[in-house]
Nucleic acid binder design. Structure first.
Lengths: 289, 289
DNA sequence: CAATCTTTGTGCACGCGTTCACAAAGACAT
DNA sequence: ATGTCTTTGTGAACGCGTGCACAAAGATTG
């Protein structure tokens, strides 16, 4: 899953909870599959299973849209597909521009799911002059200089940013200034946008880190339960002030049966934290663009 | 952001809330940036701004990790970077395999954020024999036949699925059988996995649909507030049973300017929806792989 | 037409997550 | 030492989301 969520606080749009909106596409996909198999109706139980959610939740979600089911029978597949599509605004055409045609941008341009459901890749934009004119996924790449014109000519309101982190905010500003009001950001940066502009973020690095957290936890449990409290850690930088904490770099947190490592490491790791220089990793820049 | 979230219901891992875990990578990134600029300390206010969250939330998040701040001063950057890294399990090496080296898979392999922070692309796997041996991002692609061996030889516990939707579940099953316990899924499908296996999903199509929903809403409001209730829609399939239901969609919930598009469309779209066969869009298959 | 069976729609309770607001802790100046 | 000022850490209130459990609605059968 993607992460982050820079939406209006919790302004339940219209009357539909944000959490429900996020699941509608899931239901829609499951319904579309059923539709293709010419299945006329489905029960909340079946559909919920297909969408990977619990049936009570699904029924409640649908109840926000209206009473589209028939007791004792279930939901009419075609009818529901239409209702959800309409609710999501998929009955209209949404021209989209992708900025940053690197590996990721190209992948997105080729992404089948984009073209379907009303989304149309109106243009591909990149800052590299060498890319200009070159076709990607059948669409010629245009130069950043024309960004504003492209947005306006095509009436684009949704932009996808797949540039390196460093260029993201600038691109974002230009998109917004040109009229874009919804942005899907793949660059690992927090974008600041004016009120009224929606930003959704997809961050691969974050997803992996979350998985690592759970993975570590699982390993820890398997290996004999790491002290639940686990805070055998030294005291904060209390005594050791900022800058100084840098020099002392003891052995790296060795790797024993997975968990033991974490626990044992904790002890002197406090000092390990000190190893200045390149403290952890790098700045997760995205594609080479 | 990615979507979906197939985690254990709400089993607050250890003591750290899931929501907090999801934000730690965000803080870590902001802290790393500060560290590179050799900033010694930060206040919760500053760091929160950099990470795009509210300071109270950040302080509470950190409080779950322990008391790592100094009142009146703030947090020691280096120290905090270390603590969060350790908490997320980033102090150890995480070999990762990417299955499905299409456009997306290649983009992921080249993704800089992957290599950083302890994640190491141990292998690239694809079902296409023609791909075998061909280097992508400096790593030779291997054939699916060797999947199990690769997983075991490298002690991989995290797998990334970037295959077409149709192959995802099968690949998933093989990964799990071979020992993988955490999966990052880019294929637009609901994966079913045994207890104990974590799955996170990133679905581009869903993100766009959510944006479209809000976009439609904004357009509607601008154009003179679409009837908040807006459910002037016909009655469900109540009277009109299954198959026929498609046709029985009377006038759409009228509308003004912008929303007019949706409304107008709705009218015949109802019928359009009826056009069986390929009712709405297609099955959002991912990369051509 | 009555009885039975299936499945929806929802009232209700519970728990997680967010936010406020403030006391406590420590730095720093005098 | 004492006082002031800054910033953390957290108790408490609130709101959203989830899931249970069941009444109501409609299909279906006899």
């Amino acid at each position: 899953m993607a992460t982050g969520r820079t939406h209006r606080p919790a302004t339940r749009s219209r009357g539909i909870p944000e959490a429900t909106v996020a699941r509608l596409p899931l239901y829609l996909r499951a319904l579309t599959a059923l539709s293709e198999r010419s299945v006329p109706t489905v029960s909340s139980e079946e559909l919920a299973a297909a969408a990977g959610v619990n049936s009570a939740k699904l029924r409640k979600d649908f109840s926000y849209l209206g009473s589209y089911g028939t007791r004792g029978v279930g939901y009419d597949v075609e009818y529901l597909v239409y209702q959800i599509s309409r609710e999501l605004g998929l009955t209209q055409d949404w021209p989209v521009v992708i900025v940053g045609i690197g590996n990721l941008g190209a992948a997105l341009a080729n992404y089948g799911g984009f073209a379907s459901r009303g989304f149309r890749v109106a243009a591909l934009i990149d800052a590299d002059p060498a890319m200009a004119g070159k076709p990607v996924a059948g669409i010629p790449v245009q130069h950043t200089d024309d960004l504003e014109r492209i947005i306006k000519d095509n009436g684009v309101s949704i932009g996808v940013i797949a540039t390196p982190a460093g260029a993201a905010q600038q691109v974002c500003d230009r998109l917004v200034a040109a009229g874009v009001t919804s942005i899907l950001n793949f660059a690992p940066t927090v974008l600041s946008v004016p009120e009224g502009v929606d930003v959704r973020k997809v961050d691969l690095s974050i997803e992996l880190q979350i998985l690592a957290f759970h993975e570590q936890r699982k390993a820890g449990e398997d290996a004999g339960a790491v002290p639940a409290a686990g805070q055998a850690v030294p005291s904060p930088a209390a005594s050791a002030p900022a800058g100084a904490a840098a020099a002392a770099v003891p052995g790296a947190p060795a790797a024993a049966p997975l968990s033991a490592a974490a626990a044992a490491a904790a002890d002197d790791d406090a000092v390990a934290a000190a190893r200045k220089g390149r403290p952890e990793g790098d700045v997760p820049a995205v594609m080479p663009a």
